[in-house]
Every structure is written in C-alpha cells, then in structure tokens.
C-alpha cells in the first residue's frame, strides 16, 4: 500500500506544493492537511513545509505552533509519527518544543538563497536512512532566519547523541552554531532541516536529486516500522 504523507498548509505556507510534489516523486501519496483542521486523515508521516506562516511578523513559527493541526501533530510525533520540518517547518518544530534550540535571523541579516553542500551526519532517523554516513549532498538553502542557536549544553548533547543530522559544508550560509543545518529528536522520528530538500528532486528544476533521499527515507522507515 502506498504510504500517505501529509503536507500541512498554514496561511503563508509557500513550499507546500513543492513538498507535496517531492512526496509524489518519491512514490508516496501526498495528503494536504489544513492548519485549522486538527484531523490528520490517517497519514503515515507529516511534512511541515517552508514559507512564512502567518506572515512570521512575530518570531518565525511562533503563531503556527498554536494552529489546531499542530496540537494533533505534536501528540502524534511524541507517539512516533515521522515529522519533517523544512525551513519554516523547522522553526515551527522548535517553537512547538519538539526540537531544541531556535532559529534566529541570519548573522549577515540578509535573506540568502544558494545551492548549499551539506554533510549528512545522522542516518538513523526516519528521514535520512537512505543516505550514507558522511554523505555530501547539494540542496538549496533559502531563508532569512535560519541561524540555528542553542545553549552550549544542548549543542553538546545533540552532538553526543548523534542528533546533528546535517551540517553546512563549504561556507555557513546563515551563521548557524557549529554549522548545524538539521537536527532530530531523541527518537529520530522528528527532523528539522533549514535547507530545502523538496527543491532538489527534479533534474530540470533543482541543483541535484539529492533531496529525494529525505522522502524515500521515510518510506523505507514506514515499511520497517512496527504496525
């Protein structure tokens, strides 16, 4: 049976269509979820897409975390539902305390869009099991507030527990501490990533096909996951 992967649309979500396309290209069925509807409609995994939810005029993701759908997602994530937060989705996951730390304004204060090399460091998560440890991938980054920060103890713990999922290589685009591009929770089912794997899934429109691995990973994870 085809896996069903939910993609949430908040007001101001922008990459929701792209996330749904990536899910489809990876071989799963995208299911569009609406911020105001707490129902998850039987999805096997959820993607929180990029964008500017509620305009992000307050702290990014600060309002989205209170959306009705988020209450359900937070509970389900604690129960093991695979959740991938991309860019704004990562910010929302931090605001919802599913992931530690915060994403702040890029150090250079500009929005930055470039093709970024990442090193995948944790391949045990629901969203990165298709990669090799240390694999380098090329994925677009585009954000204004993607500078990952946390207190030193948290950073040390993330490192010690192997929860730094990906790091920037060849230049840190936003000043993130320890070049962190993506992290996961303790269980490895929730991943937040600042760059945009959904924009590296087609030869025609992306710099590589490397982003597809995130979406095929979750399918692999679901097949192996206990029912």
């Amino acid at each position: 049976m085809t896996a069903r992967v939910g993609v949430v649309t908040f007001p101001g979500s922008l990459d929701d269509g792209d996330a749904a396309r990536a899910v489809r290209i990876a071989g799963a069925e995208p299911v569009r979820l609406w911020h105001g509807d707490p129902g998850l409609h039987g999805v096997d995994a959820v993607v929180l897409p990029g964008g500017f939810s509620y305009g992000d005029y307050l702290r990014c993701g600060a309002i989205a975390r209170f959306a009705p759908v988020m209450e359900t997602i937070v509970d389900a994530a604690r129960g093991g539902l695979p959740v991938l937060g991309i860019c704004n989705g990562f910010q929302i996951l931090c605001e919802a305390h599913l992931l530690p730390g915060a994403l702040t304004r890029n150090q250079h204060l500009h929005f930055r869009n470039r093709d970024q090399i990442l090193r995948i460091e944790a391949v045990g998560t629901a969203w990165t099991n298709a990669f090799q440890p240390g694999q380098e991938v090329l994925i677009p980054v585009k954000n204004g507030e993607g500078c990952y920060v946390a207190d030193p103890a948290t950073l040390d713990r993330l490192e010690a527990e192997g929860r730094v999922v990906a790091r920037y290589l060849g230049g840190n685009p936003n000043g993130s501490q320890r070049d962190i591009a993506a992290i996961t929770n303790e269980a490895g089912n929730v991943v937040g990533i600042m760059p945009h794997p959904e924009h590296a899934v087609e030869a025609l429109t992306g710099p590589s096909l490397d982003g597809l691995g995130f979406f095929t990973s979750v399918l692999k994870h679901l097949v192996g996951a206990p029912a």
């Binding site: 090799q132 694999q135 380098e136 090329l138 992306g206 490397d210």
Partner: peptide, 23 residues
C-alpha cells in the same frame, strides 16, 4: 558589504557520493 566568502554565481559542485546534474 558582506562576508569575504561571498559565493560565486557558479553552480555549486562538489565531490561526494551523490550525483550533481549538470543543468
């Protein structure tokens, strides 16, 4: 203004296990 590492408008390329597609 901007960092000294200002990147080029070159499409990033790198060695690694994944594939870079020439556009």
């Amino acid at each position: 203004g901007g960092e000294e590492t200002a990147q080029v408008a070159v499409e990033a390329t790198r060695t690694g296990t994944a594939t870079v597609l020439p556009a």
